[in-house]
């Protein structure tokens, strides 16, 4: 490639020299018959121009010039494409300002199946963190979530998956979880794990919980924990969070708004 570049540059240089020489002489000889005056006048500067052109425009310089030009062109093209792609992403996903909620999950469902963050793909999710020995807030919130899911089921079919994640690894066994979740909603999925995986899940979702690592299943204690429930899109990405003040209607309206926008963009509700 570089060899051909040099060859091309050399050819260009030769052509330039020829042009210069002929351009300098021919008009002089044709338009002015006074040979004695025109030849000395023009031969000086044209020779100078000739040698200076050769001096600067060496094959190395030409190669450098072309290589730099090509590199700059490639770089700017790449930068332009990168920026355009970035802008497309921003517009498409409203990535700006999306809180970094969600991430690795490695838990077990109340039916005994493994569950990871991959299982959040392909459907909308409402995720609540709590514990089965919760006195009043968790049952209230889960009832609220179930009522919202019932209304959304009627509108779209089962596209919103309600999920309950236990923050009480010492007491919330599979049997306990199964009895608990089926009481709220037939499709409510209970997730639980050991202390490490519970902690990892809570870290992913920015959830605080206070279960002592040494707690025993027979202990009578409460778990202090964050009481938001999260709304995630079919890519498993965070959309919004609902607190105690949000009503069933608030939740339904918010989900409907997102599902409608999703449908307009992708042509389907999930």
């Amino acid at each position: 490639m570089s060899a051909s570049l040099v060859r091309a540059a050399r050819a260009g240089r030769i052509a330039t020299r020829t042009n210069l020489r002929s351009g300098a002489r021919t008009p002089a000889s044709w338009s002015h018959p006074r040979h004695y005056a025109s030849i000395p006048e023009h031969s000086g500067p044209s020779k100078q121009r000739d040698s200076s052109a050769v001096g600067v425009f060496t094959p190395t310089a030409a190669a450098l010039f072309i290589a730099t030009g090509a590199a700059l062109f490639a770089y700017f093209k790449y930068e332009k494409e990168r920026l355009a792609e970035q802008r497309r992403d921003e517009l498409a996903d409203k990535e700006v300002g999306r809180p970094n909620v969600g991430g690795p999950l490695s838990l077990t469902t109340h039916q005994g199946k493994p569950f990871t963050e991959q299982d959040l793909q392909g459907h909308w999710s409402l995720i609540y963190f709590g514990f089965t020995n919760c006195p009043d807030i968790c049952p209230d919130e889960l009832d609220k979530m179930s009522a919202a899911v019932d209304q959304l089921d009627k509108a779209y079919g089962p596209v919103v998956q309600p999920i309950f994640i236990s923050v009480d690894p010492a007491r919330d066994s599979q049997i306990q979880m199964e009895r608990y979740v089926t009481d709220f909603h037939p499709r409510l999925l209970g997730l639980f794990g050991d202390y490490a995986s519970t902690k990892e899940a809570c870290k992913s979702y920015r959830v605080y919980f206070s279960t002592p690592q040494t707690a025993k299943a027979t202990d009578d204690y409460l778990v202090d924990h964050s009481i938001f429930f999260y709304f995630m899109d079919p890519n498993g990405r965070f959309v919004d969070a609902f607190g105690k003040a949000s009503t069933v209607e608030d939740v339904v309206a918010r989900v409907q708004k997102e599902v409608t926008a999703w449908k307009a963009k992708t042509g389907s509700v999930v």
């Binding site: 089965t132 020995n133 919760c134 006195p135 009043d136 049952p139 306990q176 009895r179 608990y180 009481d183």
Partner: peptide
């Protein structure tokens, strides 16, 4: 605590 009836009774 897992039973809705028991929770109701407690409340």
């Amino acid at each position: 605590p897992v039973s809705r009836q028991d929770r109701q009774k407690c409340w």
